[in-house]
Design a protein around this nucleic acid. Structure first.
Lengths: 240, 240
DNA sequence: CTGGCTGACCTGTATAGACAAGCTTCCGGC
DNA sequence: GCCGGAAGCTTGTCTATACAGGTCAGCCAG
């Protein structure tokens, strides 16, 4: 591994991070398993220890690894974390952890706004709305049910998008600038269908995120995201 | 600034971070204003440029600063600060809704840090920590169990505070400036004691907020807040 | 068999030096 | 006046080196 190759452009420490993430993604490194030590990676990748150190520290501060002086570096199989406020892309979030992502489209239809939806969107009842239900998987395990209504005015091509390639969120961000968002986080028991889709244990609660987003002062989408309580949590930090 | 001082224990780069944060906290550096360049800080603090680089990069990855090659380092805008989860003062929140609030102190003790707590606080195991459990009520109905550990270094008078008059959070805000916070939101089933304290229906899940706060770069408190899932939710909005 | 010591290996931190690349300013030639 | 380029700042990256301190296994003495 060398930085001098004209191809590079990607910093060495990023290449080291990618190497470790690949090892995690390929299953070579399981949760809690030990990551090669800094010196081993130095020999393996032919970079300096400081470069490896930076790469591993980065991944640790991102929550991918945990490190203990005198012991070693390990894969941190934390339950997933996301910041509730940043409109996050679940696909990117999973891939950043070096895990495999795929989506399953359960429903994609043209729906009519009922009373409640009409109020959320500020449209008349019976107004057309796109409606999608997508099941997102991390390492072949379901992690999120995304039940989303979209305003056709904002995203007219929503129905022809392929959500196994591009998440609904990515599609919306691409076609319409996000201007404002409102969200509500709750804990709730899933109904039986949802529990089965998310492969949840009996009695396990869900973390529920409801989000409404605006584009150009009109409601663009209204989404309900369900996560298994035992496998997902929102995390965030802020500075005063 | 030197690492050799016996007092130290705190890494140099943490001291550099604290120095910059103090400049921000004191108003010397406003939002968008320019942070001294790496070389200026090198001269000012008498550390190597790599150490300054690490400190500033850390603060940038935490969202405190933004950096641009060839231009400089600046204090980030921090508009996303208006985090809904920041609204921590349950008493004020309840009173703002026009409801009656009262608190019940279930426990107030001097505790010893176990392994996990020592890690959260960055202190040695067996180190003393204040520990309080307060049950907050809205209209005579329990709404939050607050289980909090506090660093005696930050709030030495914590044990003599009256939490029926001033919430633990208010006390901390008063005696120590909040600098940074980290939180995690989960959904979980309460244990029987907790369910009873919160007057919850059988099978009802809890919304759990875990929060760690920093003052002057040391962990000031670690709190676990339990809410009945059927009677509480986090909500907020933000603008891009 | 037990207890303590030692050495190997790990991460954590700090430094000096080097080069690359982005941006701004200014100056000189036209 | 206008344009181009050099100078001089900035951050970004990489390396070699050094030492400290944590952890663990294994050896050796009692």
């Amino acid at each position: 591994m060398s930085a001098t190759g004209a191809a590079a452009m990607v910093p060495l420490y990023e290449q080291v991070k990618a190497h470790v993430l690949r090892m995690i993604g390929s299953g070579e490194l399981q949760a809690f398993s030990r990551v090669p030590s800094e010196n081993e990676l130095v020999r393996l990748l032919n970079v300096s220890r400081m470069t490896v150190n930076r790469a591993l520290n980065d991944l640790a501060s991102e929550g991918v690894l945990t490190r203990t002086a005198g012991v070693g570096t390990f894969v941190a199989e934390q339950s997933v974390r996301a910041h509730p406020l940043q409109i996050n892309n679940i696909a990117e979030e999973i891939r950043r952890r070096g895990h495999r992502y795929h989506a399953e489209v359960l429903l994609l239809e043209l729906a009519c706004a009922d009373q409640a939806l009409a109020r959320e969107f500020g449209v008349h009842p019976q107004a057309p709305l796109f409606h999608s239900i997508v099941l997102h998987h991390e390492n072949e395990r379901p992690i999120q049910i995304e039940d989303r209504y979209v305003n056709p005015v904002v995203a007219p091509d929503y129905m022809s998008a392929d959500f196994t390639v591009e998440t609904p969120n990515e599609h919306l961000v691409r076609v319409a600038p996000l201007q404002r968002a409102e969200h509500v986080v709750r804990a709730a028991n899933p109904d039986p269908d949802q529990a089965q889709l998310l492969d949840m244990a009996p009695g396990e609660p869900c973390l529920v995120l409801r989000r409404r987003t605006w584009t150009n002062e009109i409601v663009a989408s209204f989404a309900t995201l369900l996560y298994p309580g035992s496998r997902y949590e929102f995390a965030g930090r802020f500075t005063v």
